[in-house]
Design a binder for these strands. Structure first.
Length: 365
DNA sequence: AACTCGTGGAT
DNA sequence: TATCCAAGAGT
């Protein structure tokens, strides 16, 4: 007779035991030894780190997290900060809608919740920039709620544990059910973090270290001798290549013409040098005819930048002029102050192509 | 449901 | 070099 598989809930214990020994120490995390001494996670720290970590690697986040925390120690401080400062501090981290929503969320907490984060998944989910994942993660990690946390790491772990052959993203609801069944009432936050650490360090996309995995006696993908086959994903679309131009004008006083992009869409609300009207779907003009003002524009090479869904090749034009010229919009910024601007990486590349040492001229650098 | 939305490191 | 992909959210 066949043995019915027991409920999967008992898998939480070997995972938590593994986590107690092998957890990563991260700046925003209260590690098990600290928790044992009664240290509680700060919801502000948990929320800030979770937003930064959305589609972003741990190494990239660390410095930004520490910088934000030093500059805005509480959610109230962040709520009171000028948006331009927040966008400039976020520059380089990508997905800039996160920064816009971060500010909105901080304001909502400060103004509508007396400066205290909601302590339930539903309450958190209603805030700007907090989706299914982040609501569950903050509820579990900061408030010890038994929430089912599902991110890319956990999708991989679950898809292998149960050898789920349905492609993502269609398989997400099933995977979330599985996670909910596994999540314990005791230490749900550590369980979620343990699952993510496991996915990041053991159950990796390539060459998973199954010999070290606390689930290796239960993993169906390992039993099939092909863990790398999971998760199955839908095919991706090819990235189109778009072209455009960027214009770097420098006065004899060492000022560069900058302007602000519209609030929505690609690089929304960020600062740029004048560029032509390229988008993910439409090529922009590449010649100096499209410059913000007529001048002796000089070609300065091209910059290639790969976004998530398209590749951009920008023709760079530069000109040295005696003094300011009225552009239709924008402002003139000292080259020595470019580091303080909300310049996304693609714009730093464009400026560097025209002014090679532009970002080595900061006042305190 | 399918798109849009950055960046840099690993393989 | 090309591809993947990393603690996803908003529309």
């Amino acid at each position: 007779m066949m043995t019915l598989k027991t409920t999967t809930a008992p898998l939480a214990k070997p995972l938590l035991d593994w986590y107690d020994r092998h957890h990563r120490d991260l700046p925003w995390r209260v590690s098990p030894p600290m928790a044992k001494r009664g240290i509680k996670a700060d919801p502000y720290h948990v929320w800030l780190s979770e937003v930064m970590l959305q589609q972003t690697t741990v190494p990239a986040v660390k410095a930004y997290f520490l910088k934000f925390l030093a500059r805005w120690p509480t959610v109230g401080d962040l709520a009171a900060a000028p948006s331009e400062d927040v966008m400039a501090a976020w520059a380089g981290l990508g997905y800039y809608a996160r920064a816009r929503n971060l500010k909105k969320c901080a304001e909502a907490v400060a103004n509508d919740h007396s400066g205290v984060f909601p302590d339930t998944e539903d309450g958190l989910r209603a805030l700007p920039g907090i989706g299914d994942y982040t609501a569950a993660a903050v509820a579990a990690i900061a408030f010890n709620r038994q929430a089912a946390v599902m991110d890319g790491n956990i999708e991989r772990v679950i898809s292998r544990l149960y050898a789920i052959s349905t492609p993502l993203p269609a398989a997400k609801p099933l995977m979330k059910q599985k996670v909910a069944l596994l999540t314990p009432s005791d230490r749900p936050g550590d369980f979620a973090q343990a699952m993510m650490d496991l996915g990041a360090t053991i159950c990796t996309p390539k060459r998973p270290a199954c010999a070290l995995c606390p689930f290796n006696g239960s993993c169906e993908a390992l039993a099939l001798h092909d863990p790398e086959h999971f998760p199955v994903k839908a095919a991706k679309k090819a990235k189109p290549v778009r072209v455009g131009a960027a214009f770097v004008a420098v006065t004899s006083d060492g000022e560069v013409l900058l302007r602000r992009r519209i609030e929505s869409g690609l690089l929304g609300g960020m600062t740029e040098v004048p560029t032509t009207g390229w988008t993910a779907r439409i090529d922009g003009e590449t010649s100096a005819d499209a410059a913000p003002f007529a001048a002796d524009w000089q070609p300065s090479g091209t910059v290639t930048h790969v976004f998530t869904h398209f590749e951009l090749r920008l023709s760079i034009w530069r000109v040295a002029i005696p003094g300011r010229i009225n552009g239709d919009d924008g402002w003139w910024e000292p080259v020595t102050n470019l580091d303080a601007q909300a310049l996304p990486t693609v714009m730093k590349k464009a400026i560097t192509a025209a002014i090679p040492r532009a970002f080595q001229q900061s006042k305190d650098g």
